[in-house]
Amino acid sequence: MAKNKDVRVTVILECTSCVRNGVNKESTGISRYISQKNRHNTSSRLELKKFCPYCYKHTVHGEIKK
């Protein structure tokens, strides 16, 4: 059988400001989103601006390892 070499892969995006600041004192966690990217078009790590419910603002969410 052939190995699974999908072009589209699922990635997890995590809030970079929550991780850097050690999570706000009022918050209960770190904001994470699940998205997909095309491995051939975007070989580097993905970074998107998303809303973080713990920071209460739009922040940069970067791709993390599974």
Results as ranks from 00 to 15, higher is better:
Met1Asn: 14
Ala2Glu: 14
Ala2Ser: 13
Ala2Asn: 09
Lys3His: 07
Lys3Gln: 10
Asn4Lys: 11
Lys5Cys: 09
Lys5Glu: 03
Lys5Gly: 01
Asp6Cys: 09
Asp6Trp: 03
Asp6Leu: 04
Val7Phe: 02
Val7Thr: 04
Val7His: 08
Val7Cys: 10
Arg8Pro: 03
Arg8Tyr: 11
Val9Glu: 15
Val9Gln: 12
Val9Ala: 12
Thr10Cys: 10
Thr10Trp: 00
Val11Glu: 09
Val11Leu: 12
Ile12Leu: 12
Ile12Glu: 14
Leu13Lys: 06
Glu14Tyr: 02
Glu14Thr: 00
Glu14His: 00
Thr16Asn: 10
Thr16Tyr: 05
Thr16Met: 08
Thr16Phe: 00
Ser17Leu: 09
Ser17Asn: 13
Cys18Tyr: 00
Val19Phe: 13
Val19Met: 13
Val19Cys: 12
Val19Asn: 14
Arg20Glu: 11
Asn21Ser: 10
Asn21Met: 05
Asn21Thr: 00
Gly22Leu: 06
Gly22Asn: 13
Val23Thr: 05
Val23Gly: 00
Asn24Met: 03
Asn24Ala: 15
Asn24His: 05
Glu26Asn: 02
Ser27His: 02
Ser27Glu: 11
Ser27Arg: 04
Ser27Phe: 04
Thr28Cys: 11
Thr28Ile: 01
Gly29Val: 01
Gly29Tyr: 01
Gly29Lys: 00
Ile30Val: 07
Ser31Phe: 05
Arg32Ile: 04
Arg32Phe: 03
Arg32Ser: 12
Tyr33Asn: 09
Tyr33Leu: 01
Tyr33Ala: 01
Ser35Cys: 04
Gln36Tyr: 09
Gln36Met: 12
Gln36Trp: 09
Gln36Ile: 05
Gln36Lys: 12
Lys37Leu: 06
Asn38Trp: 06
Arg39Trp: 05
Arg39Val: 10
Arg39Phe: 12
Arg39Tyr: 13
His40Glu: 15
Asn41Val: 08
Thr42Glu: 14
Thr42Ser: 14
Thr42Met: 15
Ser43His: 10
Ser43Phe: 09
Ser44Gln: 14
Arg45Ser: 14
Arg45Ala: 15
Arg45Met: 12
Leu46Asp: 03
Leu46Cys: 09
Glu47Lys: 12
Glu47Ser: 14
Leu48Ser: 13
Lys49Tyr: 03
Lys49Ile: 11
Lys50Ser: 02
Phe51Cys: 02
Cys52Arg: 05
Cys52Leu: 02
Cys52Asn: 04
Cys52Asp: 01
Cys52Met: 04
Cys52His: 04
Cys52Ile: 00
Tyr54Ser: 08
Tyr54Leu: 04
Cys55Val: 00
Tyr56Asp: 12
Tyr56Thr: 02
Lys57Thr: 09
Lys57Phe: 05
Lys57Tyr: 01
His58Ser: 07
His58Asn: 11
His58Glu: 14
Thr59Leu: 02
Thr59Tyr: 05
Val60Phe: 13
Val60Asn: 15
His61Tyr: 04
His61Gln: 06
His61Phe: 04
Gly62Ser: 13
Gly62Ala: 15
Gly62His: 01
Gly62Arg: 05
Gly62Asp: 02
Glu63Asn: 07
Glu63Val: 09
Glu63Ser: 08
Glu63Ile: 09
Glu63Leu: 01
Ile64Cys: 15
Lys65Gly: 08
Lys66Pro: 05
Lys66Ile: 00
Lys66Val: 06
Lys66Phe: 06
